[in-house]
Amino acid sequence: MAFWATPQRGANSFNRLPPGQGYFQALSATGASWVRLAYDKWPTGEVDFLIGNADGYRGLAIPDLQTLLATLDRAHQAGLKVVIAPLSLPLMRWSQNNGGRFDDRLWADTQNWRAAAIFWQDLARTLRDHPAVAAYNLVNEPAPERHGGLAEHAPQADGHAWYAARQGTGRDLPAFYTQVVKAIREVDPHTPIMVDAGWYAAADGFSYWPAPLADPNVLYSVHMYEPWKATSDPSMFNRPLHAYPGLAPFAEHQQFWGKARVADYLGSFTRWARRAGVPPQHLVLGEFGCLRRWPGCGAYLDVLDVTEQAGVHWAFYAFREDAWDGMDYELGTRPVPWAYWKAIEAGTPDPLPRPGSPLFEIIQRRLKPAAQ
């Protein structure tokens, strides 16, 4: 946990191709100290990268594992720490790799947790001594509540009642994490473990948890795109845009969103942590961002002010993503040229230069202190 003893600032990498050395060197040059790495878009000879097949896990796919290890080596050479963040687990395939369908199997029955625990034990056994690895983020944006009867952003009292009725079932996220952590600790007693809140890592997603996990080397992570309809919904450009600060829909109501509301909403995370006795150095804003072409994006990035004041670790979404340009702030606010989409179709590297922009400078100013 020594790496996490002071605030760390970084980025997310959700690329369709394994990042090369130049990518990691460029990220390191921004002042970032860590990268949250998702590999599920990378090419594979299997159905699902590294897992082999999420429908029936039978061991790590060795060629994919070699690709991941080589990628970690490149990150280490650039001086970056890496948090491994799978989007899919056995019996829970990421919706974008599942025809847009939410895969609820993992949360339907506690018996379905076993394969996920074995997968993570296998992976931890392999990665436990790699010098780049700073944490295992067990699964990106879990949502056992989605088909379980709890509304998104439900009042806290509703969340407590919901959890009391479902504790010990497949939708018991703390119990799921406990089982996976136990499996990892049998082969790796030291590497920190990062856990996302429920309802897609919502900042209020820990509010119903009665206590933190028992393991002392756990980091707790949330994501911040709220109010999503205003900041991050790709269909927003088909209707009148919401201003920021300004009114926006949230939890089926219109609310005024500005810096104070952002601070209050993210405060649901830090307030839970204080009640639970979790120190700030164990808290992570694992993703945040806004669509770069939204006029309010620059002002919305004041989420960083709130995060810095709270003293928690953070990683912006995303650095030089080669599969989607929506939150690639170095590109500014203009549409990308056809060459970007042509490269995606051809499966070739992203050809675009990244000249920087005022949007990225907002993030850059806060990344640099991590390098000093």
Results as ranks from 00 to 15, higher is better:
G258L: 06
K259C: 12
A260H: 11
A260R: 11
A260K: 10
R261Y: 03
R261E: 11
R261I: 06
V262W: 08
A263W: 11
D264P: 01
Y265H: 13
Y265E: 09
Y265M: 07
Y265S: 04
L266N: 08
L266H: 08
L266W: 15
L266E: 07
G267C: 13
G267N: 13
G267M: 14
G267I: 14
G267Q: 08
S268N: 14
S268Y: 10
S268L: 15
S268D: 12
F269C: 04
F269P: 00
F269T: 01
F269I: 01
F269M: 04
F269S: 02
F269W: 05
T270Y: 03
T270G: 03
T270L: 10
T270C: 02
T270M: 07
T270I: 06
R271K: 13
R271T: 15
R271N: 14
R271W: 10
R271D: 14
R271Y: 09
W272C: 12
W272Q: 09
W272A: 13
W272R: 14
W272D: 13
W272L: 14
W272V: 14
A273R: 03
A273N: 07
A273D: 04
A273C: 10
R274S: 12
R274W: 03
R274I: 08
R275G: 15
R275S: 15
R275Q: 15
R275D: 12
R275F: 14
A276P: 06
A276V: 07
A276C: 10
A276G: 06
G277M: 13
V278S: 10
V278N: 07
V278I: 15
V278Q: 05
V278T: 12
V278D: 11
P279L: 08
P279R: 06
P279E: 10
P279I: 03
P280T: 06
P280E: 04
P280K: 04
Q281T: 10
Q281P: 04
H282N: 05
H282V: 02
H282Y: 01
H282Q: 15
L283V: 05
L283Q: 08
L283S: 04
V284W: 01
V284Q: 00
V284R: 01
V284G: 06
V284Y: 00
L285A: 04
G286L: 10
G286H: 11
G286Q: 11
G286F: 07
E287D: 05
E287R: 07
E287M: 01
F288C: 05
F288T: 08
F288L: 06
F288G: 07
F288Y: 14
G289H: 08
G289Q: 14
C290P: 00
L291Y: 09
L291I: 15
L291H: 03
L291R: 13
L291Q: 11
L291T: 12
R292F: 02
R292N: 00
R292A: 03
R292W: 00
R292E: 03
R293N: 06
R293H: 00
R293Q: 14
W294F: 01
W294D: 00
W294M: 00
P295R: 05
P295L: 01
G296Y: 04
G296L: 04
G296F: 02
C297T: 12
C297W: 01
C297R: 02
G298F: 09
G298C: 09
G298M: 08
A299S: 12
A299N: 06
A299W: 03
A299P: 07
A299F: 03
A299D: 15
A299M: 02
Y300P: 13
L301M: 09
L301N: 04
D302R: 10
D302I: 10
D302Q: 11
D302K: 05
